[in-house]
Simulated scan of single mutants.
Amino acid sequence: MARDESPGVPFAIPGAPAPTVGRHHVNGCRLYAEVRGAGPPLLIIGAASDDAEMFRPIAERLAGLTGVAGFTVVTWDPRGTRRSTRAGWPCDSYTHADDAAALLQDLGLVPAAIFGASAGGIVAMRLAVRHPDLVRQVLVYEPGFFRSTDSGTALLARTTDAVRKHLRERTDDWAGALAVVARMAGRDPAARPNSPDDTAGRGPLDAPPGLEWYTERGAALAENFIRDDLPRTGETVDPALLRATGSDIRFAFGTDSAPVFREIAETLTRARQRTGADPHLPDAINAAAHLVYLTPDPIARYIRARCLPEEEVD
């Protein structure tokens, strides 16, 4: 079946098998999803401004092939994103989590391992709490729960105010509002560049030179970011619910990300801690930054190490 994709996506594996494409009617909308490989099921959840094609390189690295242990990987366009319909959109993380649960059930791929990144990490955590019977393991990478830390709360307030001001002056200029967010994130006093060379001065939402495909994709989905992802980062966490769920949840951050994301991961790990349990730290993924699709190899290695049975890992 032909795919609606951009052949120029960076990091895609040449000659990788095409996925099975489906459109699934769940919760009053139609969700576009792709399924690759063989093995235990894995659902990758991105933000509303991330479509399935952006996660294609990670999915290709994780798909189980003949003689190679891996997963049956599901990537999808969330409600309101590109090839999925916009009924009931924009929506909160609870709706996206219920959509993810219904999608997994419709595919018959439960219980599944879950990897959620950024605003998709918020959805992954909601999925773990609301539908624990459908998940096997949940990896929550740099979720945008900014209100869980002081630095995150301040950054969210500054960014939200700046976006509102921009949209008052330039109605529906979503790309311009996204640029405002990128500038504000880059001014985060806790943020640091990924390296001392050509990445200096980049913010956590900026793709490096040579990866303009992601910049263009992000600009095309700017409305999704502003109307769905940004409001979602104002949601809060109920520590009691987080501790009570029986789901296997791990929080993680990238070593090349802004420190605010490490702070959030540490805060949520402490909130998850049950009385009397041995303390543990969030997982640190070397050479990974906030936009996980820019570093597919370390992200894929991390997911394999955490979610595949030991005897199946290469």
Rank of each mutant, 00 (worst) to 15 (best):
L291F: 05
V135P: 00
G80I: 03
T171F: 13
R217G: 05
P239W: 12
A179N: 10
T160G: 10
P132G: 09
G88L: 08
L65S: 08
G201A: 08
A191M: 13
K165N: 11
D278I: 13
F11K: 07
G88S: 10
P17G: 09
A38P: 02
S118T: 06
D92P: 02
P204F: 08
A220Y: 06
T149C: 12
P10T: 11
L42A: 02
P40L: 12
A102L: 05
E5F: 11
W174P: 00
A252L: 11
R130T: 05
G201N: 10
L211Y: 14
I285H: 03
P7W: 14
Q273G: 12
I249K: 00
S247C: 09
I58Q: 05
I226W: 03
A12G: 07
H290S: 07
L42C: 02
A97D: 04
R272P: 07
L221G: 04
E266R: 13
R243V: 14
I114K: 00
V260H: 09
G121R: 01
R202K: 12
V9W: 07
T75Q: 01
R147Q: 12
F146Y: 15
I114L: 01
G144V: 06
L139T: 01
L134D: 00
G8A: 15
F261R: 00
A154K: 14
G64P: 05
L294Q: 10
F115R: 01
G218H: 08
A177S: 09
G186S: 13
T149N: 07
G46K: 03
E60A: 03
T295M: 09
E263S: 12
V129L: 10
E216G: 11
N286Y: 06
E53R: 11
G234N: 13
A154M: 13
G121P: 01
S247K: 05
D161N: 08
D133S: 14
A300L: 08
A52C: 10
A287I: 04
V73L: 05
L281M: 14
A87D: 14
V313I: 15
A190W: 10
A87T: 08
R301F: 07
A252S: 13
R86H: 13
D106G: 04
R136M: 10
L242P: 07
P78W: 01
S93D: 07
A38I: 02
L291R: 05
A222N: 10
G37H: 01
L155D: 05
E263Q: 15
A102Y: 02
H131T: 06
D198P: 06
I45E: 00
